[in-house]
């Protein structure tokens, strides 16, 4: 068994206009099958990926918002969103999907996965990662 590494996925692109957001999500789900320590960061236009209330029927594309809500099932509990990016876009945490994970050790208590953090805090998180994948 190899040692557990800290993977950080940095998401900086808006969804739907380009394929980056969906590609990133697929890689995250694949990576999560390998029991690594996974952290997601959403910065710049990447914060738009986890905005709630999306309806893609009109553009005839698959709506992958619901897939983010499955991240808790994949044991992904650390999702960081840059505060400065939200502010620049007139968004608050209330505009984002309500992403939860269930703590098996506390009778499946639901806990928040999303944490809004400052640029400085994100710098520490990025510095701490063993492997960073950028999308």
């Amino acid at each position: 068994m190899s040692e557990i590494k800290k993977f950080l996925y940095v998401n900086r692109k808006a969804p739907y206009g380009t394929i980056y957001a969906w590609e990133s999500l697929e890689v995250v789900l694949i990576g999560a099958a390998f029991d690594q320590d996974v952290t997601l960061a959403f910065v710049d236009d990447g914060v738009y990926q986890i905005v709630k209330g999306t309806d893609t029927a009109g553009i005839e594309m698959k709506n992958f918002s619901p897939t983010y809500t499955a991240l808790g099932d994949y044991d992904i509990k650390k999702i960081y969103v840059e505060k400065e990016s939200l502010e620049k876009r007139g968004l608050t945490v209330d505009d984002l999907l309500d992403l939860k994970w269930e703590d098996e050790d506390e009778d499946w208590a639901e806990k928040d996965s999303i944490h809004v953090v400052s640029s400085a805090e994100l710098a520490d998180i990025m510095d701490d990662a063993d492997i960073t994948l950028s999308f």
Partner: peptide
């Protein structure tokens, strides 16, 4: 239907 993905075995 709910998540738009087929889950991995572990999940």
């Amino acid at each position: 239907e709910e998540y738009q993905i087929a889950p991995a075995v572990r999940v």
